[in-house]
């Protein structure tokens, strides 16, 4: 009985796959190429994750390298004994959480405000200006930051000095540096990140707003009861994705912004990997660190998705 049931399911599945294939083959053909891309550039390179468990040699194929000590976990043990790695782990978490708490709501608020603007042209201009920083590389942004925030030659500090105030160490004191780091990150990305929300807002049925107006709802009521619930699923999806990146942090932002005076808070996992792995040739150690980082990220992603489904949202799958 059971067997026949599975058989039927299998047949159905087979059948439906064939049917879909026949009906939408053009779409599948189009899909095939991106899949091949993912396979070649994202999955095949994963073979080299083995380096984390092996003694790396620059001239051997990854299959020929000898296994590391301690059943291959030598480099994971080394990483967790390395104080710099632990600091980098702490800093990554700290900076990313700050980014999440401060950087995540701002695009939403910005989208809501933008949505309330009556003058279409003004709205477009504001939107475009807010996008622009997204296209600047971090090296350029650091150049701008130096011109503005450097203790003696920075514009803002020169103004402060002329008005009789002390310079503010925006870049050369750990606490201030964190604030500058977060501020620059938000400034660079909030315009760009608000696009998704604006698109979601545009998809809300305008009749809802009309009905609310008839019922006497003001702007804030409408925002609270219509716009925000309307984009809630978008917010949740993006929140899950950012939680999945909680240990991720790009390389260029911390690397471009850090300097020797603030390394106690600025050294993150990606820059640790660069300095020890690529410059110091400790490939196995840093692959182990990178692998660990990915596992934690996947864990956070699954967790966030699970929570959102428990709360009645759709999650990302």
């Amino acid at each position: 009985m059971k067997a026949s049931k599975t058989n039927i399911v299998a047949v159905q599945k087979k059948k439906s796959f064939g049917v879909y294939m026949k009906r939408y083959w053009q779409l599948y053909v189009l899909l095939a190429l991106p899949l091949v891309y993912l396979l070649i550039f994202k999955y095949i390179p994963m073979v080299y994750i083995q380096i984390a468990f092996k003694d790396y040699s620059i001239v051997q194929s990854v299959w020929e390298m000898p296994w590391a000590d301690n059943n291959g976990f030598e480099y994971f043990i080394k990483a967790f004994k390395n104080r710099d790695f632990l600091f980098a782990l702490r800093n990554t978490l700290f900076l990313n959480l700050l980014d999440l708490f401060i950087g995540f709501p701002i695009p939403i608020i910005f989208a809501l405000i933008l949505n309330e603007l009556v003058f279409k042209n003004f709205k477009r201009v504001v939107q475009t200006i807010a996008y622009m920083p997204h296209f600047l590389s971090w090296v350029i942004i650091y150049g701008l930051a130096l011109q503005l925030f450097a203790p003696t030659n920075g514009l803002i500090n020169m103004l402060l000095n002329n008005m009789g105030f002390e310079s503010i160490p925006f870049l050369n004191e750990s606490g201030h540096w964190v604030a500058t780091y977060i501020f620059l990150g938000v400034w660079q990305s909030f315009g760009w990140n608000s696009i998704v929300y604006l698109a979601a807002i545009a998809g809300i049925n305008p009749e809802l707003y009309e009905a609310a107006s008839v019922d006497g709802a003001g702007r804030f009521r409408k925002m609270w009861h219509i716009t925000l619930p309307g984009i809630r699923s978008t917010i949740v999806v993006l929140l899950i994705m950012s939680l999945g990146n909680i240990l991720g942090s790009g390389f260029d932002r911390p690397f471009a912004l850090q300097n020797k005076l603030v390394m106690d808070v600025a050294n993150v996992i990606s820059t640790f990997v660069y300095k020890n792995g690529i410059k110091g040739l400790q490939f196995s150690l840093t692959t182990a660190v990178g692998f660990f980082q990915s596992i934690i990220c996947v864990f956070f992603l699954l967790l966030a998705n699970w929570i959102s489904r428990r709360l009645g949202e759709r999650g990302i799958w």
């Binding site: 710099d84 020797k260 005076l261 390394m263 300095k275 020890n276 410059k279 110091g280 040739l281 400790q282």
Partner: peptide, 16 residues
Amino acid sequence: GMGPALSEKRDIVFDT
């Protein structure tokens, strides 16, 4: 493999 990591530490101590 210690060169870059130690040089970095040294510079941090010097600068701070």
